[in-house]
Computed example of a mutant assay.
Amino acid sequence: MKNLLTDIAGVSVGHADDADVASGVTAILFDKPAVASIDVRGGGPGTREDALLEPQNVVEAIDAIALSGGSALGLDAASGVQAWLAERGRGFRIRDAAVPIVPGAICFDLLNGGNKAWGRFPPYRDLGYAAANAAASDFRLGSVGAGMGATTAGLKGGLGSASATTDDGVMVAALAVVNAVGSVTVGTGPWFWAAPFEVDSEFGGRGQPSSFTPDMLKVRLKGGAQATAAENTTLVVVVTDAQLTKPQAKRLAMIAQTGMARAIYPVHAPLDGDVVFAAATGAKPIDPLFGLTQLGAVAANTVARAIARGVYSATALPFPGALPSWQDRFG
């Protein structure tokens, strides 16, 4: 167990980013098509193929997921991942044709100090292809890939991951790109809201404050009153080795959303585009009621841990006025 999304067999993750642009892409690839669905809770989402993932629609399984910076301009990252898969003959078969199924989601990182004067076309399609080409079982956390330009209220955001196993031996893992309008830490201190779910000091082992003061519970928003609906989003991918139907994957995504509420304060705001993808590789049978409920509960905890690890692992961008990292403040 690496405490990564790739602890699930048949899953690989790759990053590609541009330090000058201060943005990037993360590709999650499945060796075999994975049953998947989606749950969107934020008020300002940016997604691709979200309708396809609804349980009532035809396509059951996906080949990959693309996460990107760049706001709506970053949705083209999925085209790069799709091109990489097409070169290898992957995709939904329609007679002699194959169409790679690559849902995607983006976060807003266009005002983080990087050079966004990229010319006619944004770089995200090429970054998507490069991220797919770099996919492996090991990958970095923090200010990399889709998390390179991410920020939160007061601290640099980033990309995190975590994994767990249920009492029944079913594995679940999460990957999170944390670009929230809210805060991942309590007040102005080093404590993560996700502290009750931490495993083996994976994000510093600071625990919780001895008591919660009114100032700690004050709502802190990135940008304050100047925050706008397009500037934030936390993107999450949850993967399990359970056998799930598409409606069950939808339910898993819905339950896993509670992990955001355990790690970010506030969350699911009009200022966010929060989204959870849930995918199942189908290796292990699961009870459709109790088993799925237990899996969802563990998944939610794992999402909270992945969010905290993303901020804990981040490094500040090298631009004037850039937000400090957690390590800069408390490490």
Rank of each mutant, 00 (worst) to 15 (best):
A16Y: 01
A16C: 10
V21T: 15
A27T: 12
A27E: 12
L29N: 15
S37D: 04
V40I: 13
P45H: 00
D50Q: 03
E54I: 06
Q56G: 08
V58E: 14
V59Q: 01
D63K: 02
G70L: 01
A77N: 10
A77S: 06
A77K: 05
E87P: 13
R88S: 00
R90Y: 00
R90V: 02
F92A: 09
F92K: 03
R93A: 11
A97H: 13
I101P: 07
I106P: 12
L110P: 14
L110Y: 11
L111F: 08
L111W: 13
A117M: 08
G119S: 08
G119W: 02
P123T: 07
Y124G: 09
G128Q: 00
G128L: 02
A135K: 04
D138C: 02
M148H: 10
M148I: 09
T151I: 15
G154W: 02
K156D: 14
G158I: 05
D168C: 14
G169V: 06
V170I: 15
L175Y: 08
V178S: 10
V186K: 03
G189W: 01
A195C: 03
P209R: 00
S210W: 07
F212W: 15
R220G: 10
G224T: 09
G224A: 01
A225D: 10
A229W: 08
A229Q: 14
A230S: 11
L235G: 13
T240M: 14
Q243H: 07
Q243I: 10
L244E: 08
K246Q: 11
P247G: 04
P247S: 01
K250L: 05
A253R: 02
I264C: 06
I264P: 12
G273A: 03
P285K: 00
G291R: 02
V298C: 07
T302N: 05
V303W: 02
I307V: 12
R309W: 00
Y312V: 04
A314L: 09
T315K: 09
A316Q: 07
F319P: 04
P320Y: 04
P320H: 07
A322Q: 10
S325D: 05
S325V: 06
